[in-house]
């Protein structure tokens, strides 16, 4: 159980849940980041304002943390920019094709007990676990 941080995890997770509930209460929308973001790139979208506002808030949070003296460290990324770009393409295309990501399916969908979201979450978790098993343990491991 290396690096296990349950208390900050519970507080942070509860805030994510609060955000999802408030967004539904205020705007009637599901707090799925892939859905909110993806809608920006669809030419048929006519409701960009709330999407951009949500994204602005999302980016403002780490900036506020930095102002309060707790800057967010740059995340560790793979050395190869090509690997990063491939991963980004897969995440973008996959979340649109599958209609959701960790927040849309994993939180909002499972909270509604949606069988679709439970299935999607199981699939993306297992796929990601297999990839990590291969990259960390599989090759020459």
């Amino acid at each position: 159980m290396a690096n296990f941080t349950p208390i900050s995890a519970a507080i942070g997770g509860a805030l994510i849940g609060l955000s999802a509930v408030l967004l539904m209460l205020f705007t009637g929308r599901i707090a799925g980041i892939a859905g909110i973001t993806g809608g920006l790139f669809n030419p048929k979208t006519d409701d960009r304002m709330w999407r951009l506002a949500f994204i602005a808030g999302l980016i403002a949070a780490p900036l506020a943390a930095a102002l309060l003296g707790h800057p967010v460290a740059m995340p560790e990324m793979p050395g190869s920019m090509i690997a990063i770009a491939v991963a980004g393409l897969l995440v973008g295309f996959g979340t649109r094709l599958g209609n959701g990501c960790t927040s849309g399916h994993g939180i909002c969908g499972i909270a509604r007990l949606s069988p679709r979201s439970i299935a999607a979450t199981l699939v993306f978790m297992v796929a990601a676990m297999i990839v990590v098993a291969l990259t960390r343990h599989g090759i020459g491991g």
């Binding site: 491939v86 991963a87 973008g92 996959g94 094709l97 599958g98 993306f124 990601a128």
Partner: peptide, 12 residues
């Protein structure tokens, strides 16, 4: 879609 997303998620 979920499988493709999971692969990308696991890579980075």
């Amino acid at each position: 879609g979920a499988a493709l997303f999971g692969i990308g998620w696991g890579l980075v």
